[in-house]
């Protein structure tokens, strides 16, 4: 049984078929990348998974349980964490408070709030900045904070929406190591434009185009697919 399973997932905006009957499986412990040209429906698709956008047709199951109609905050508590494409920390609060909010809202019982916050911060290497105001951090550090908040939720599924956008080349290397260290406890669903990161990290890749699945497979298989090359890689 797959960890997260979507069947016939559909969402139209007016006449636009943003997501059109997508089947999708996320296996436990895998890093799964979601790629596709701009406007292919990637962000809408993960918004359906996380509950930020209501589903029009289709179903979503988490470990066999139907969560299609569950509101977003309840899905977070079931173990689906979403980190925002545009960095969205609470700028006026301290780094500690940002992560503490995630610990409180997440899956763990979090009796030891300080310990859980410290653990999440040390995982991303921000433990020295716990008392800084989040808005004063550099952009790269804010992205790490965002990731720490995702981890502090103790998710089963961590959805990362363009996590390397705006990071410097050196920071990307550290980021890849970090994501690799998360599995197999957490399954990672990654939306990413940087092909090097995708090919390097992902166990499996799903390619979306015009709201539908164009191809799916290992990085090598996807790279070899003529349909993908034509639609996306432009080779």
């Amino acid at each position: 049984m797959s960890l997260l399973e979507a069947r016939g997932l559909t969402r139209h905006f007016g006449g636009l078929r943003a997501v059109d009957g997508v089947d999708f499986d996320l296996a436990a412990g895998e890093i799964h990348a979601l790629i596709g040209p701009n406007g292919a429906g990637k962000t809408t698709f993960v918004s359906l998974l996380s509950g930020r956008v209501p589903v029009q047709a289709g179903s979503i199951r988490l470990v066999g349980e139907d969560i299609t109609r569950l509101p977003a905050h309840a899905r977070v508590r079931k173990g689906i964490a979403y980190t925002f494409q545009i960095t969205s920390v609470f700028p006026g609060l301290s780094v500690f408070d940002n992560v503490a909010l995630a610990v409180q809202g997440g899956r763990g019982s979090a009796r030891d709030l300080r310990g859980a916050v410290a653990a999440a911060l040390s995982r991303v290497g921000l433990e020295a900045m716990a008392s800084d105001i989040a808005g004063t951090l550099s952009y790269g550090h804010q992205r790490l904070l965002e990731l720490a908040m995702g981890l502090a939720l103790q998710p089963r599924v961590l959805i990362l929406d363009e996590p390397t956008q705006g990071l410097a080349a050196g920071e990307i290397g550290n980021f890849k190591d970090l994501v690799r260290s998360l599995v197999p406890e957490v399954a990672v669903l990654l939306i990413e434009h940087n092909m090097e990161v995708v090919m390097d990290l992902a166990h499996r890749i799903t390619v979306l185009n015009f709201g539908q699945v164009l191809a799916r497979g290992t990085p090598a298989e996807v790279r070899a697919s003529p349909a993908v090359q034509e639609a996306y890689l432009g080779a």
Binding site: S50, R52, P71, A72, H73, A74, V76, R77, A81, Y82, F84, S88, V89, F90, P91, G92, L93, L101, A102, Q104, G105, G106, M149, L153
Partner: peptide, 13 residues
Amino acid sequence: ENEERARMLGINP
């Protein structure tokens, strides 16, 4: 500060 972000941290607004 940011209700939508709070919701995505498992808080029922």
